[in-house]
């Protein structure tokens, strides 16, 4: 354990717990309107104030963070589910047409900026949380495929893999018995980083209207709503932003600490 890991771990644990708590309890109903109490500054009744409909900001942030975490988690899941087998397969058939095909495919997907992908999907299917998940999920596939392939290639050079081959094991079996377990550290660290990125991606896409749609709570949409009122009520913008920063900061610190703790030598692509 090191300082980054403890600090980041605690920070993200507290915030994730608050987000999950919103499933069963929030200080106020995040969706209920209370026009007479609109645009309240933070006080004892509303710790972080209220918005232009009188909704409690703290409750909205708790529920919005839950959405962000969900979107990020599913998108990372998509990346892992497709990226790991592709990366393992490419590494096992290094230099063959399979490898070439997978890597060229990765390059093409990588050439689509995340926003371009989201724009394309939204333009065709309309904006929704699901489309944000799909866009970031597709973006994650080459990230994980490259991470896995890179790690796997150096493992394939190791003599214990040769020993397994001499023992007659097929490359499929070696990939799952010897390669993948030795990549778990790498994947946890890369996963944490992509997860943190996912929180930001959700916020950005929802901010410009390409992500989560009403009535689902979202930190990005809170900021979009706050934009017109920012001179009048800065707290509408400040608190959701701080929430995003703290979650991302916590996860990134945790990821960095975890990397140093698990293995100082592993290298993770940070984009």
């Amino acid at each position: 354990m090191n300082r980054n890991m403890i600090l980041g771990g605690t920070l993200s644990a507290v915030l994730i717990a608050a987000a999950l708590l919103s499933l069963v309890w929030t200080p106020y109903d995040y969706a209920s309107l209370d026009i007479p109490n609109k645009l309240q500054r933070p006080d004892a009744a509303h710790l972080l104030g209220t918005d232009h409909f009188g909704r409690d900001i703290l409750s909205m942030i708790m529920a919005g963070a839950r959405t962000s975490l969900g979107v990020a988690l599913m998108a990372v899941g998509i990346g892992l589910v497709f990226g790991i087998p592709l990366g393992l397969w490419a590494a096992a058939r290094k230099g063959s047409w399979v490898d070439e095909f997978i890597m060229r495919g990765n390059d093409v997907v990588f050439a689509f900026p995340l926003l371009a992908m989201a724009i394309l999907i939204t333009a065709v299917f309309g904006p929704s949380a699901l489309n944000a998940i799909i866009a970031f999920g597709i973006f994650n596939i080459p990230v994980f495929a490259r991470t896995v392939r890179g790690g796997a290639l150096s493992l394939w050079e190791r003599e214990f893999i040769l020993a397994a081959r001499v023992s007659g094991k097929s490359s499929l079996r070696i990939s799952f018995e010897h390669i993948l377990p030795n990549l778990v550290n790498l994947l946890i660290v890369q996963g944490t980083i992509q997860f943190a990125l996912g929180i930001q991606v959700e916020a950005a896409l929802s901010f410009v209207g390409l992500g989560v749609q009403p009535p689902i709570p979202s930190l990005g949409r809170m900021l979009a709503d706050a934009q017109t009122l920012v001179t009048l009520a800065p707290h509408l913008a400040v608190f959701p932003g701080l929430a995003i920063i703290l979650i991302v900061l916590g996860l990134n610190l945790f990821g960095d600490g975890l990397r140093d703790w698990l293995d100082p030598r592993i290298r993770v692509a940070r984009t």
């Binding site: 190791r158 003599e159 081959r165 007659g168 094991k169 030795n182």
Partner: peptide, 22 residues
């Protein structure tokens, strides 16, 4: 597909005492 009949008649010891084991 490796021919197990032949493979089981042959084993190998590598150079690197650190990289030879999972």
């Amino acid at each position: 597909r490796p021919n197990l009949n032949v493979r089981r008649k042959m084993q190998v010891v590598f150079q690197d005492p650190f990289g030879s084991f999972n």
